[in-house]
């Protein structure tokens, strides 16, 4: 049995983080809102950095429902896109080389998105994690949970359906 020399961990990490950064930076609206991603293995945590422009109720103050909805939709789309990028990177060969060159698969398109506003969005950072409940050849169903200070106290959740890039509307 032959044992392949594994790549140094730093090389693997750097490649994955670079691919994630390129994927996110390509989306202007994510940059505009101040949405970034942190990665542990293939798991992503999405972060919405607090900024005054995200406020929708200055009297409370509270985050705008539109900012929260946008944050969750970005988290859902990126989770799906990342799953595809990850598979290509890990498979090696031409698919991995394309990712290396910055050639990403087309982004999924939102069919519908339902947001459940559970608590007031406080004027501070928010976090979100998306779970792909089903990814078929054409359609995907994704659930997103978002919290601020306390992971167990969600301030919003959402479910969305997406058209995968290889499917035609």
């Amino acid at each position: 049995m032959s044992v392949r020399n594994p790549e140094p961990v730093q090389v693997v990490k750097q490649r994955r983080d670079a691919a994630l950064a390129r994927m996110v930076e390509a989306v202007p609206y994510a940059r505009f809102l101040g949405v970034t991603f942190e990665r542990k293995g293939d798991e992503l945590t999405c972060r919405l950095a607090y900024d005054e422009k995200l406020i929708g109720n200055p009297a409370l103050p509270a985050l705008h429902g539109g900012a929260i909805g946008s944050f969750l939709e970005i988290a859902a789309i990126m989770e799906l896109a990342w799953a595809q990028v990850w598979d290509r990177m890990e498979s090696g060969g031409p698919a991995a080389e394309a990712i290396e060159r910055g050639e990403f698969p087309p982004l999924p398109k939102t069919i519908d998105f339902t947001v459940d506003y559970l608590r007031t969005g406080l004027p501070r950072d928010g976090y979100a994690r998306a779970r792909v409940n089903r990814m078929g050849r054409r359609y995907a169903s994704v659930h997103v949970e978002a919290w601020q200070d306390n992971r167990a106290r969600l301030f919003a959740q959402a479910t969305g359906h997406f058209l995968m890039p290889n499917g035609a509307l």
Binding site: V27, Y29, G66, I74, P106, L107
Partner: peptide
């Protein structure tokens, strides 16, 4: 506004922008 684009390949606005306008 190009800053509100969701898909750089098509230049289409992010769904979140539509959400923000509809929610408001």
């Amino acid at each position: 506004d190009p800053r509100f684009v969701g898909d750089p390949a098509t230049g289409v606005l992010h769904g979140g922008v539509v959400t923000a306008l509809l929610d408001t």
